[in-house]
Design a protein around this nucleic acid. Structure first.
Lengths: 356, 356
DNA sequence: CTAGATATCCAAAACGTTTTGCACAACGCC
DNA sequence: GGCGTTGTGCAAAACGTTTTGGATATCTAG
């Protein structure tokens, strides 16, 4: 097999790879063109409909396309077009249901506009994050949805944000203004909890917060304290179940909780608190009410079901992505703009009026 | 339009877009070359280390690279190289923790070899799946990890499998031989459950299966039935929580469960079953034992904690991807090969000896 | 019968890299 | 002084598209 691609009129041959017949080079537009006796230009026009082509010629081209199983190389197309129709989604941990939901929203929004999503799972690893940021600098992706509040990257992010399309989701990176932001209304969530507990008659509460560095956690706490208008004892945890357990157990040992309600800044810490209370022989909600934040799946399945604030993780991902793409498709770097999405208080079995 | 890029020293502007100075074309290798007074070839060699370059020249080039903030366009690089260092991961639902774990394993394995992962979330939608399969045909991705057992795609998949690197994860597509496969040992999982329930003294069990079309579900059922060696009532569900609830509730209405144990083919259906049982006033595990499959996160967080079979979702994703990449990096289409990963029975609070 | 419009298709440039063959000079060796 | 060797860097081809300015033939109107 000589593998000659006799160009449509001149006797020129496109030198293929005669030697190794093993790996069959996929058909290119040139192959189609010469097989159909037209120029690559015409093939392109037939396929894109970008310019009219004689119907007879077009039919011939299409038949060759089928016969050869020709599929345009998207790489070459992207190179020419200057964009790839792919964006990145940077998150710390896809196995965390919150981020998985967020990712689903992002993927849906991207799919709607024909974009693909590259999963950038960082595990809070700065090197890993850097590698993924490199994808945007090398223009392999058209934009990035950034939902990973790992502090060390702020500097780098800042430098990129003016040059490339980037949207912040869920967590606004402290001190990073002028960006596209979609986040849940953490402050309102805290407020709802405060109002709920106050309405039930509670006047003294324990609040388990997340690390001070995360703005979302601070917002939740602020909203709560303002609305509760009672005494609030604050303890700083790390959003993990163990820390909720540890903090509550410690207080119980030191001579009693001295509170009628516990508000944990996320469901996992609330679970820890529940365990500690149960271990101490206290009953929820009879002796103590407990409220969480996030509404992860287990929250509604434990007993008693956990009163918590439902975060619109899916919507956060979807909104951030849709907003980002709105600018990406127009080749613009997005302006500063904030979207705060509503949260919802789910009242379940873990809260009740304080024992009198 | 002359399209000259002499901009660096002469005051000439970029012919590309004089009109909108807003969008500055990123520096190309030509820009660097002319600014450093060398050829693009030399720049390429300095950056890749592919051929030796005089240290003085190299230093000059590097300095220009920094000054201009040059980053090679990965698209052009990929076009030339003939591969993108990106693979696809096709799954039905990323918000399902099982697939999220699997995705994490895939991402980790890919990252280890410098590959990126495009998240292809199908929601069991054939069109969506087709679009993503198009990415491999258009060679935008170098390979695909396929973990979405939606039946309609089998035909298309079959056609692709000989031509492109594809690995099956978790679910082997029925009748699709000659592929790279990584899956959990579903049959052994079913067997472990059967042995466990039999050892506790159960002799009559209700088994909630998944759709018959999925081999994994069939394997689980077969393993269970063989090991349990008692009477098994079988009901077909669809792996969703609602179906577990519906099936059990229906049986209870029709005049009693008449079984001392329920084995659901996945945790979600087990959750549904638990709810139905609780609603009927039955106590788990006192009146009925319940076992699930998958060991999703919520399984250990509900009360009573669910006895279930731990699936190595992470390992399945990681193994499938690592195997796939082994061939992708060598430019080969992978041969037939199967990796069956061990499962583990997690005995928790939802199982006990039958009431006497 | 002729000028302009229309239909049809092609050549060449452009996207931004990497790779390969070659040119040229300087050097060491016999 | 000739010859292989090494060091250095360039030109050109190749990857596979899309886009744009024409070129040529055919048609239409006056």
């Amino acid at each position: 097999m000589t593998r000659e691609f006799r160009s449509y009129e001149s006797g020129r041959t496109y030198a293929g790879n005669e030697d190794r017949a093993a790996v069959r080079r996929p058909a290119s537009i040139k192959d189609v063109a010469s097989a159909a006796g037209v120029s690559p230009t015409t093939v392109s026009h037939v396929l894109s409909g970008n310019r009219p082509v004689n119907e007879l010629t077009a039919a011939r081209v299409r038949s060759v396309v089928n016969r050869l199983g020709y599929v345009p190389a998207s790489l070459a197309r992207s190179l020419q077009a200057g964009s790839t129709s792919v964006i990145g989604l940077m998150i710390p941990d896809i196995s965390n249901t919150f981020f998985a939901e967020l990712a689903k929203g992002a993927e849906d929004a991207a799919h709607d506009l024909g974009y693909g999503v590259i999963l950038c799972n960082t595990e809070f690893d700065a090197d890993r994050e850097d590698r993924y940021l490199g994808m945007i600098r090398s223009r392999f992706i058209d934009g990035m949805v950034y939902a990973s509040g790992s502090p060390p990257s702020r500097r780098r992010l800042e430098a990129l944000m003016g040059k490339f399309p980037i949207a912040l989701a869920d967590e606004e990176v402290e001190g990073l203004e002028g960006a596209l932001i979609a986040t849940a209304d953490h402050e309102a969530g805290g407020r709802l909890v405060g109002e709920h507990l106050r309405a039930l008659g509670h006047r003294r509460a324990l609040m388990l917060t997340g690390p001070r560095a995360l703005k979302s956690g601070v917002d939740r706490a602020n909203g709560f304290v303002r609305a509760f208008r009672g005494e609030v004892v604050e303890r700083v945890g790390d959003f993990k179940e163990a820390s909720g357990h540890r903090l509550v157990a410690a207080l119980l040992q030191e001579g009693g909780l001295d509170c009628t309600a516990v508000f944990a800044a996320n469901d996992l810490m609330a679970f820890g608190a529940l365990t500690a209370l149960r271990e101490a022989g206290l009953s929820v909600p009879r002796d103590v009410s407990v409220v969480g934040f996030d509404d992860i799946r287990a929250a509604s399945q434990i007993h008693p079901a956990l009163t918590t604030v439902h975060q619109p993780a899916y919507d956060v991902g979807r909104t951030a992505t849709a907003q980002l793409l709105q600018y990406v498709t127009r080749g613009e770097v997005p302006p500063a703009s904030r979207h705060t999405l509503p949260v919802e208080l789910k009242v379940r079995g873990s809260t009740a009026p304080p024992a009198r």
